[in-house]
Amino acid sequence: MWTYEKRLQFPVNIKNPDPAIAKFIISQVGGPDGELAASQRYLHQRYSMPYDEAKAALTDIGSEELNHLEMVSAIIHQLTRGMTEEEIKRAGMEAYFVDHTAGVYPQAAAGFPFDALSFAVKGDPLTDLHEDMAAEQKARTTYDNIIRMVDDPDVLEPIRFLREREIVHFQRFGETLENIKDKMNSKNFYAINPAFDMKK
């Protein structure tokens, strides 16, 4: 079970609202490689994972992704706080404003809402862990692209922290993958699906 801690994992204090950049940073809230997808991907993959080390890694990284979802949502909130009608129009944010005012809705930069189709739960440890490693790289690329578009150091600092966590998680999932391979048939890792074929 989860409990809430009343703090962010890394501080977010943005002095100058800027709805124009919120329009694309929101992809890391509800986009295909965003933090909501990341958290749900790992927390749902846990149930079919047959190895304790991998259950721990998916639980811990999935939980950390919830911290990141909160951080990136805080960024959107602070970038859109106190907007005037004029600023909304200048930022080209009318379409979002009409549906959500200045609320934080999980959607991609292109405007489509969060979709569980952006992640998979295949029920096969090798398949799922390969997806997880790819997912971390995709999120890292997204943060790279955001960094190219942003100048404000108040925004860049937490975004750089989040980017770094993608790299660390990629590394940890790589170790998890090696760890579970050690428990499988080294002549043919694909001989069986240990989540389905090995009954206790």
Partner: peptide, 9 residues
């Protein structure tokens, strides 16, 4: 010890 099962689910 964190990784030791059984896990809650």
């Amino acid at each position: 010890s964190w990784v030791q099962g059984p896990w809650p689910w």
